[in-house]
Design a protein around this nucleic acid. Structure first.
Lengths: 268, 268
DNA sequence: CAGTGGTCTAGACCACGCT
DNA sequence: GCGTGGTCTAGACCACTGT
């Protein structure tokens, strides 16, 4: 029977106590010095143990502020129906249906239009291999590249980097950053150009954030992100490629519905 | 201008080299001692830097084996259409369509029936609050609990913990662990009981694995997992609740399609 | 200002992979 | 057996939080 490293034993013990409610969310763990004495080990053992819990997303540590059991933020549910609402908004014309302008983002976060802010950066570039394949166009085809950081109540919540064919949007209000935020979002923009979105495809990945992403989104350690590749399709044409929507994974649950009742796929 | 800690500078440098291809996937980084000398810092600085990269999922370290740039496993695409195939399988009766028995899992992994194995553990329990709400039954209603670990070529790939109403399956082959693996999976099982699945709902979360999950799935460090809550619905009745499907997130991409062309939601 | 966690040093021994 | 990364000691100074 080989001995488990001391820091793992300490981590197991602390984890157990957190999960059993001995250290409830929001409470402080004992200081390193106290833990050191309690377990009769050196500081680095405690440090390694706490670092492990931090990378598991169980605790947060702050200089001078102690080690705090993380509160699980209640996750928002991102339902696919929100896109339906956006589409209708765009098609119908004015968003005068209810409480003023809206977007899937504002609906998701339950915030008003005034609490919604985004920072935008627009550039143009030629399609690289991946984008060319997704759009079904030639390499180097001019695209409008838009990078958004969505804020709810001044808190950064989501990064989006997306692309539109330049020949579709050049000279239109859609290509004007000053027009953002746009009620109804991208579906409304595409509808305003005469191309209502008929299908959306989302490819969901999860990974650890890059340091830049963690900084932009003010993320706590030990939290993965969703990285979603999204296509907006009108008829058979891909009109928008969102290369990545990046969302901290502790803040959302993605809801999808799959209907099997209708006629299944053709072949086979 | 405050100074960035040394270990972050070293991590930045190494990360940059990895991303630029200076250290390609599968290659070894210099040893700690070499890095120490190269940067003129103590060992712990190197250690902290490499630990950071490991938690970001960029490298793997092994005692005696050096620090290796992780190869990105090519992610499998889990498309929602696979459920359609399963449903047809069950309804049609025999799975004699093509290459023998199949499941969404075998299709996903491109493996034959012989390379597919699962370990199963069945128990019964009363519905807790969450399950009762999802099934729409009373607290304590008897349920069959099934825990599966799916293996492809003897590699553990996926954990599933799911529940069926006991009054639906008691005494049927579905409640017999020895009948697994079952061609067509759960949709086929439900169809065999006269309840074809008409709708599936999936709620996708991502988080760091528990230590038990990491061990069961033989995961490398710094990799999050998808945790999917899945409902199988026939008509208006929830027939199966999969409380969590756990899949290492570096191995899959989840594809979803959202059709907007049809009649939108009723209200509003 | 006291207390806390963060970074770092110099050094030791251990466990594992490779050859 | 040798070299690698893993664990650990004892101690120092720094940066931030709270009072």
């Amino acid at each position: 029977m080989q001995e488990r490293p001391a820091y793992l034993l300490v981590a197991d013990e602390l984890r157990h106590r957190i999960q059993r409610g001995r250290y409830p969310p929001g409470s402080k763990l004992p200081t390193f010095e106290e833990l050191q004495r309690a377990y009769g080990v050196s500081e680095i053992v405690i440090r390694n143990a706490v670092a492990l819990l931090r990378h598991e997303g169980l605790v947060d540590t702050r200089r001078g502020g102690g080690t705090v059991v993380r509160r699980r933020p209640q996750a928002r549910r991102l339902a696919m129906d929100r896109y339906r609402a956006e589409g209708n908004l765009g098609v119908g014309g004015n968003p005068a249906a209810g409480n003023g302008p809206a977007t899937s983002f504002t609906a998701d976060h339950g915030i008003g239009w005034g609490e919604y802010r985004l920072s935008a950066r627009y550039t143009t570039m030629g399609a690289d291999a991946e984008l060319a394949a997704l759009f079904g166009v030639d390499l180097g085809t001019p695209l409008l590249r838009r990078r958004f950081v969505f804020h709810a109540r001044e808190e950064p919540e989501q990064i989006s980097v997306n692309f539109l064919p330049l020949d579709l949007v050049a000279g239109t209000p859609v290509a004007d950053p000053a027009r953002e935020p746009w009620p109804g979002g991208t579906p409304a923009q595409l509808a305003s150009l005469g191309h209502p979105v008929t299908r959306i495809e989302e490819s969901v990945s999860a990974r650890m954030p890059t340091t830049a992403e963690a900084q932009t989104l003010r993320m706590s350690h030990g939290t993965p992100v969703f990285a979603i590749l999204r296509l907006m399709i009108s008829g058979d044409a891909v009109l928008e490629v969102c290369r990545h929507i990046v969302i901290p994974a502790d803040r959302v649950v993605l809801d999808y519905r799959i209907d099997l009742a209708g006629p299944p796929g053709l072949s086979g």
